[in-house]
Design a protein around this nucleic acid. Sequence first.
DNA 1: TTGAAAGCGCTAACAT
DNA 2: ATGTTAGCGCTTTCAA
Lengths: 346, 346
Amino acid sequence: MVRNNNSGIKEIARLSGVSIGTVDRVLHKRGRVSAETKKKVEEIATQIDYKPNIMAKYLATNKNHRIALLIPEPSQDEYWQQAYEGIESTLSKSEQQGVHVESYFYSLGDKKTFEKMANEILKNKPEGVILTPNFLDEGLIFYNQCMEASIPIIMFDTTIPDTQPLSFIGTNSFQSGMVAAELLTMTTHHSGKFAILHFDEELVNSPHMLDKEFGFINYINKECPDREYLVVVLNNEKHYYNDQIQKLLDKNEISGIFVSTSKAYQIGSYLQEKNIRNINLVGYDLTSKNIELLKSRYISFLINQNPRRQAEQSIQTFCDHIIFKKAVNSRILFPIDIVTSTSIQE
Amino acid sequence: MVRNNNSGIKEIARLSGVSIGTVDRVLHKRGRVSAETKKKVEEIATQIDYKPNIMAKYLATNKNHRIALLIPEPSQDEYWQQAYEGIESTLSKSEQQGVHVESYFYSLGDKKTFEKMANEILKNKPEGVILTPNFLDEGLIFYNQCMEASIPIIMFDTTIPDTQPLSFIGTNSFQSGMVAAELLTMTTHHSGKFAILHFDEELVNSPHMLDKEFGFINYINKECPDREYLVVVLNNEKHYYNDQIQKLLDKNEISGIFVSTSKAYQIGSYLQEKNIRNINLVGYDLTSKNIELLKSRYISFLINQNPRRQAEQSIQTFCDHIIFKKAVNSRILFPIDIVTSTSIQE
DNA sequence: TTGAAAGCGCTAACAT
DNA sequence: ATGTTAGCGCTTTCAA
């Protein structure tokens, strides 16, 4: 039952009449090999379709690697808590592979904390950075600093326009907006307007928030141009959400609402309070408040961005890159995950 | 940057004052160790929280393993083709890990072919079997034969009642039926009846087909008991599908149709032909005909059972079990994957 | 430019 | 009952 070892580096060495050291040198392009032997070895390698044994490779390399993680404070926000759970769940695996993750958190309400943490990371010179750049300008500065220091970056959840991270891991925001519009049109029984709601004025301009809106509008324009819609920004400072919602509903005949953040529950709880059943609501993310309202059907659909899985994928992609030197995909987009009251996993 | 080696078997040996051979013996319960040293080694091991290095373990073990795969002929059916693609996509990985997959196919229309292949597998004595038992009785016989020969079995897509495979990998059929009912009630604009359609008379009694139906009915009874529904079995032999559908629609006012197999396209193409837009249709599986009709919106939703991923998971689970001796989950159920016209990945 | 050899953490056969 | 040792496939250092 012992594996037949006619496929390894040793076999290449035997067939090409050189030592395994030489084979290794040509395989890793470390030079110091005559053109002649190089050619021969490469020929044999392709001929026997050589695939390195990653387990052995890992074992022999046996290095430690440090990567830094920079995300919003998990305790501040359930979404980021879920993301961090994803990190934690792969931690033991990545540790075992010799990849150590150092976590840095910033506050969503304070750009300074982002800058502070970014600087700290730069000081510690990790081999890689995993980042969710909720502050675009500060994020771009940090991105450039990392590029200068040749530290590869993986971004997840959010990207910065015009950057080329090693990989972006997330969902297709534009498409998710289209799907939201589609779900609303499918479930809406009367012809009232659709409302696209934004919270947190300052984040409205973030690219993936805009993409969601554009996707939504794009769908409406293309598939049901008769449907009217309006874009509303709820003022976060006053916290008079309910008043603002009421005003919106009083002024307009609304049949469907699309909330482009994880705050659909704010609307849902209003609908619940007033027992409004003829307005369909689509939002994002499986946070506990959202789930509760999804179950009681004041939210019709939630689009699950799966921060957990995004985070796991980020770590894993970095491990693949750093220790197995695998080529990584520059964009890993998860399929749109539509969740309903009964499809949710308990 | 070299990893600190204060966590391995060598360290345990050093701390407990014995040789690594002895440590290995107690760790693997191979006996021939005095109770005293055994206790000591175990203490130290838990103390330093010893976790074996699976890479090294794998490298040292270095065995070949053969597992057999028994599924319906992929060329016969797009669904099984997708499943087999999943197998193929993990093949190089599993090969590298020393796990060789031998594929056996049976015909969905011929139980004899199942029996024949099952016998062949038993003759070849693989270390494990991956199986989708579409024929329950023959499947049970094979299951028992494997149990007798102590060959572990993983089932995916379908199970056999009252069996205990190493793992079942699939979707929750009952829940998926509920979700289908929910989607229909959400999107249906008038009060007509719902129709639950079955094809292929002989498979109607398969447990996961029934589960889908039960789930559907369960949802209706619980959430909208006023809604009438009827269960219809379309006669497969005559192939007069359109006639049968027409008769159904003539006799009843139908507002929604649930097809519990991947044959929703049969209904969808009828609706397309007659340009019927006020009947919502929910089916299963992303086959090309279904996708086409989903895109043109004659099918409202498809529930993706993801045969690809199920198959991949089956192989991976067996690898984990055989080579890494990991404990495996006896049920791995994927979340319900709802697909719409715009959410589908091109 | 090349080869030889040590070693990664673990397993298993072989000594003692 | 316990210790020693030779690998597993690969990387990397040191000689030649």
